[in-house]
Simulated assay, not measured.
Amino acid sequence: MKLFATSDIATSVRRAHVDFTHVLVNRGYTTIKPVFFRSILIADLPVYQWGFWKTATHGQHANWRKNGGVLIDEYAFSDKSGPADVLVFVECPMTMQRIVRSSQHIAEYTVIPRPHTWRVHEQCIDLRTPAVEQLQHLWRFCRGARMTDAELAEAADLPRQHVMYMRNSLKPAEEWVMKPRLQPEFAGFQAAWEWVGAGRSASKKVVREAGHRAAVKEMARLGHIALEKYQCYPTADPDWSRLEKKRADAIADLAAVRSLVQSLPDHLQA
């Protein structure tokens, strides 16, 4: 199987559609601040949209398989869609695994977009696999504590948006504190509203297992309940050497992807 790079995703999709019957577009995003692909740019083509976990879209996949065209896969890995002629990513992957796994059923070639800048990918590594020194700085304030992201951000003098990603390496358990405000009229919220009752604290896992996670979040967004999320941090020190290795592996993996993409021929000039 061949690999190409492109600076124009929509044009690459169009070219693939001219030459082949079944084109697969991977529209899964793994970076923190992705540049979203505007599917309107290929709206005149026979486009189908599919997510393997969305039962309502399974008919779209079947129609694409029967009629051909362009299937937009919403998942990060495109190995579940079955055979296709061409795969086009809308975002340059962070890892070689994503490229290899997504391409395993592709008959002709895969197209990977060239990032305008690699800074977005590098920032993902810095936030999802932070340097041990940064994690140890956070650990000074959160070890064994129950606190919100805003409280930790203020204590550590870091942006809250950064703390939300960085603290995941420290494996806190998330607790939701829910308090009623204004009873909703929508019948679909009633079960969750009654579950919250006069107020409830529960782990995120318990909320999910009770089947109310989506309803609770939506009621909070609409102002029916007040929702505060706390992170409960362990008291035992993390395995710093493991975290250091995880970061080194992520850096090496991105370097391999970058080297690959920079070496590939241009799809639109091939």
Results as ranks from 00 to 15, higher is better:
Lys246Ser: 12
Arg258Pro: 00
Gly223Gln: 10
Ile9Tyr: 15
Leu170Gly: 05
Ala226Gly: 12
Val25Asn: 04
Ala62His: 07
Val111Pro: 06
Ala156Gln: 08
Leu71Gly: 06
Thr21Trp: 14
Val23Pro: 07
Ala153Pro: 08
Ala270Asn: 10
Asp44Ser: 08
His22Asn: 04
Ile42Leu: 06
Glu218Gly: 01
Leu45Gly: 11
Leu243Trp: 12
Leu71Ser: 06
Glu244Asp: 13
Thr110Met: 04
Asp73His: 08
Gln123Ile: 09
His22Arg: 15
Leu243Asp: 12
Phe141Asn: 02
Val35Lys: 13
Gln161Ile: 13
Ser169Ala: 14
Thr110Lys: 15
Lys54Met: 06
Ala255His: 12
Met219Gly: 04
Ala248Ile: 07
Asp8Leu: 10
Lys217Glu: 10
Lys66Ala: 15
Glu174Ala: 05
Ile225Gly: 03
Asn63Gly: 01
Leu227Arg: 07
Phe52Met: 09
Lys246Thr: 08
Gln262Ala: 03
Val47Gln: 03
Pro115Tyr: 09
Arg258Lys: 15
Met178Glu: 05
Ala191Met: 15
Val206Ile: 06
Arg258Asn: 02
Thr129Val: 05
Ala236Trp: 04
Ala191Trp: 15
Asn168Thr: 13
Glu122Tyr: 13
Phe4Glu: 05
Ile251His: 03
Gly197Gln: 10
Tyr75Glu: 02
Ala210Phe: 12
Trp195Leu: 02
Lys245Pro: 00
Phe37Glu: 03
Met219Val: 06
Ser78Glu: 09
Ala155Lys: 10
Val86Met: 06
Val18Asp: 13
